[in-house]
């Protein structure tokens, strides 16, 4: 493995480096938990790695809270997400997803944006963020910013909407509109640790004082080429009482979720298994 490394320390230097690499093959490196494996498996010649590990930029590196919600920098690690009290209190789905990433050692270095930009259909934090209606903050080499809902950001297996001259800077999660939440991440796999989801379900429901669902976000992972936001299933829940979701209503909800699943059979599980377990999981969310 042989590549050039550029280690920008400021945002300006980063954008310059990206600009200078427009005619070359380049990759971003931050936590290196996926990149090194990838380069070992697919050796590339004349590659430049823009190393983000030394970048000093608050937007890239910090978690900040404002009136509208929470901003999480691209370089925030899974371990930092886990330590954040706002995430713990308001977004349990994200906390549980971050806690299920690989192992404790890997979580110390794996970054949020790394998890997202791999665009794996089984990305844990990505799945939780889609359920949370997260929005991407993207900048380009001219320092212009664009925003895009995360669900649209994913375009296929290992494909995102990022252009070569762009970089994901941070993720925004809108504030909860209700105090009461039912929020969690179900990851199906063989091992407790060091596992990649065979399938996953992220749910984030907000209910009012009368237990009426006021907002719902449900995303499913590893059952389609991208993580899917189950729009109609979410809409189906709005306005219903939490206690009403059983029997026929539950069956109906479940089939709404399953409509978004187009699983494949691979070495880890068959399509039958993925579909069956997805159906089973949708039914235990409300237990």
């Amino acid at each position: 493995m042989d590549f050039d490394v550029i280690s920008p320390k400021t945002r300006e230097a980063l954008l310059e480096a990206m600009d200078a690499c427009q005619d070359k093959k380049y990759r971003f490196g931050a936590g290196y938990t996926d990149l090194i494996n990838d380069l070992n498996a697919n050796p590339q010649e004349d590659l430049t790695v823009i190393n983000l590990a030394q970048l000093q930029d608050d937007v890239f590196s910090n978690i900040t809270e404002d009136d509208s919600g929470l901003h999480i920098g691209a370089l925030v690690t899974a371990a930092q997400v886990l330590e954040n009290e706002y995430v713990q209190t308001h977004f349990p789905v994200l906390w549980e997803a971050a806690n299920s990433v690989a192992s404790m050692q890997i979580r110390q270095t794996a970054t949020l944006a790394g998890n997202i930009c791999q665009a794996s259909p089984s990305g844990d934090m990505s799945c939780a963020l889609v359920a949370l209606n997260a929005v991407c903050d993207i900048i380009n080499t001219r320092d212009e910013m664009r925003i895009e809902p995360l669900a649209n950001f994913f375009r296929g297996v290992k494909k995102t909407s990022l252009a070569k001259y762009e970089i994901l800077r941070s993720i925004f999660i809108p504030k909860n509109i209700q105090y009461n939440i039912k929020s969690g991440y179900v990851k199906i796999g063989t091992r407790v640790s060091m596992e990649i989801a065979i399938l996953s379900v992220a749910y984030h429901l907000q209910v009012d004082e009368k237990n009426i669902i006021a907002a719902a976000g449900i995303a499913i992972g590893a059952v389609a080429p991208t993580i899917k936001y189950t729009q109609t299933a979410c809409e189906f829940l709005i306005g219903r009482s939490l206690y009403e979701i059983k029997d026929v209503v539950l069956e109906n909800f479940s089939s709404q979720v399953l409509n978004y699943a187009t699983p494949i059979s691979d070495v880890r599980a068959s399509a039958w298994y993925r579909t069956t377990v997805l159906e089973n999981v949708t039914k235990i969310i409300f237990d």
Binding site: T190, R191, V192, S193, R268
Partner: peptide, 16 residues
């Protein structure tokens, strides 16, 4: 062999 890695071959860990 189609699962020549710890990703596809499920050796358990101490956590299990």
């Amino acid at each position: 062999l189609i699962n020549p890695s710890f990703h596809g071959y499920k050796l358990l860990t101490s956590m299990d």
